[in-house]
Amino acid sequence: MITITDLSYDRDETPVLRGVDLTLNAGGVKALIGPNGAGKSTLLSLIARLIPMQSGRIMVDDLEIGACANDVLARRLAILPQASEAAPLLTVRELVGFGRYPYHKGRPTAADREKVEDALATFELQALAERRLDSLSGGQRQRAQVAMIFAQDTDYILLDEPLNNLDIAASRGLMRTLQDLAQHHARTIVIVLHDINYAAAYANEIVAMKDGGIVAQGAPQDVVTEAMLREVYGTAAAVHRIDGRVLVGV
């Protein structure tokens, strides 16, 4: 469970987050949505300890962000680096192998190697294992990154707008993978998404943000309404319900 209490964050004296209180239960896919500048990415970066805490408190189970050692947290939560951080000249197997670094600190054991092979198999990367990342397509490279995060074996996985630059096939593939990780591998996924339709289709829970605060939280069919879109995004989009699923007209 991720518990956030009275979290505020200012950038250049402009408030980005204003006293956020939020509880994310373990399990499932949680999507953070909201317009640009709502504070979604900042919130995720704070949970991932990518930026320093200013005020408030974030607990990941019993570990407090800002107080807990970096390498302990690395075994509890993982963040997928954005695709824009260009690929190092590593093979897929080498990259996935680095996912075990928080455990072996440079001296991989047989168990670590097994986890790596397991991750390669889970993500159907065996055929690409010896290929270098710079020779792969964007979608394949991201699959390798996710496999690395998987090998890191953390309860929580955070992703910041991972669908940028992915086509529909790669986007659906990634979202299905994340769903599978939540359902069958007991991982909790927290993901910032721009596209509400992806959030509605794949998330178990949606958190809508606006102006540095939480506006709504709940199941997609409860949160994604015409009233919410008007309030959060200021746009009058129609919301369709088909076979119990929610679809925003664009």
Binding site: N70, A74, I79, P81
Partner: peptide
């Protein structure tokens, strides 16, 4: 090698 992958990757892997 990890530091060469960038800041986010370094923090993610618990590197000091």
């Amino acid at each position: 090698a990890i530091i060469g992958m960038g800041r986010t990757a370094s923090i993610n892997l618990g590197l000091n």
